[in-house]
């Protein structure tokens, strides 16, 4: 009897050590946020879609697993599958930073809010996979929706009051040469303009660990004002020719300001000044002229 117990214990130890070794050898894949529709009884606070975290297998492709998860019936009774019964995801092909999702022809019969919900759930789910920024939806060879990204869908009313709102602030992504974004609550009044509130949130740094600071600590806003659609921002505490920053980092830093500020109505472009003066470049990236929003360097959204 004792022998059996010892053998069992030894086998258990081997199993545990084997698992541990496997875990150590291949890091656990990042979870995928699968977006589904909340059942009508659970649509509280204006929420329509709900993310459901799914940990993919290490063996298959994440894109295929995300597509399969989208088609599955949710376990929770609070959630519903976004795809109607007759609409099926036939394939999902991963590109450089995008995914093309192939649906059957029944998809073409869906319209209105129902179609928007399908598009949103597919896009948001695919963009939650690291490295995916855009989603295209095709039926056969026909491209029905091209280059959808997570910013195309507003999942909640971000305006809290006439002096408080949740605003999308852009930060460089930690692991790639692109911008990600997250919502920050900005308060403003007669003394502090919304532009200043956005810049303070930007210089305060990101909340998410997958994003990083655009500007070093100690950077301060000297002034900010908007005139004729051009927002002029004067920064201090940074050296324009600091060689510790690469031009790529400079580009991300500059567009983190430009893209964040141009989300405000009435701001078309942003002029960045250093210590109150026009500067030809910041860390090797030209900022002499006002800059407009650059969507091409926006990666997937980190948080909605």
């Amino acid at each position: 009897m004792k022998k059996r117990v010892i053998v069992l214990l030894a086998a258990l130890c081997v199993l545990i050590s084997g698992c541990a070794a496997e875990t150590a050898a291949s890091p656990a894949p990042e979870s995928i946020s699968v977006y589904r529709v909340l059942s009508p009884d659970y649509q509280t606070g204006g929420k329509l879609l709900q993310e459901d975290r799914v940990v993919p297998n290490t063996s298959g492709s994440q894109v295929a697993q995300a597509a399969a998860a989208l088609a599955e019936k949710p376990q929770s009774e609070h959630l519903q599958c976004p795809l109607p019964d007759d609409v099926m995801i036939l394939d999902a092909v991963r590109g450089e930073n995008s995914v093309t999702v192939y649906l059957n022809t029944e998809y073409l019969n869906v319209s209105g809010i129902e179609k928007t919900i399908i598009d949103a759930c597919i896009t948001l789910t695919m963009c939650s996979i690291s490295g995916i920024d855009f989603v295209s939806i095709c039926v056969g060879s026909e491209v029905v929706e091209d280059k959808l990204d997570s910013e195309d869908f507003l999942l909640f009313d971000n305006i809290i009051s006439s002096q408080k709102a949740q605003v999308r602030i852009y930060f460089p992504k930690s692991d790639e040469n692109a911008l990600g974004s997250e919502y920050h609550t900005i308060s403003f009044d007669d003394e502090n303009s919304p532009e200043r509130g956005i810049l303070y949130a930007l210089l305060g740094g990101p909340i998410s660990g997958s994003l990083k600071r655009a500007f070093p600590s100690g950077t301060i806003v000297l002034s900010v004002y908007t005139q004729d659609g051009v927002c002029t921002v004067s920064l201090s505490g940074i050296t324009p020719d600091d060689e510790t920053h690469t031009p790529e980092e400079a580009k991300l830093a500059v567009y983190s300001i430009v893209n964040s500020l141009t989300s405000l109505s009435g701001i078309k472009s942003v002029q960045i000044l250093i210590n109150g003066k026009q500067s030809p470049s910041l860390w090797g990236f030209g900022i002499y002229s006002p800059l407009s929003k650059n969507d091409s360097i926006i990666g997937s959204t980190v948080t909605q």
Binding site: L38, Q43, T44, G46, K47, L48, L49, S111, G112, I113, K115, T116, I117, D119, A120, E151, D152, F153, L154, L155, F156, D157, N158, I159, A165, Q166, V167, R168, I186, P194, S263, L264, S265, G266
Partner: peptide, 24 residues
């Protein structure tokens, strides 16, 4: 009818062009 925002009075983060997926 597709929930695409055609008009938005929000001065901060106007959603025109985006899809408003609010339950309301």
């Amino acid at each position: 009818e597709n929930a695409e925002i055609l008009y938005d009075t929000a001065s901060m983060g106007s959603g025109v062009g985006s899809y408003a997926l609010f339950s309301e």
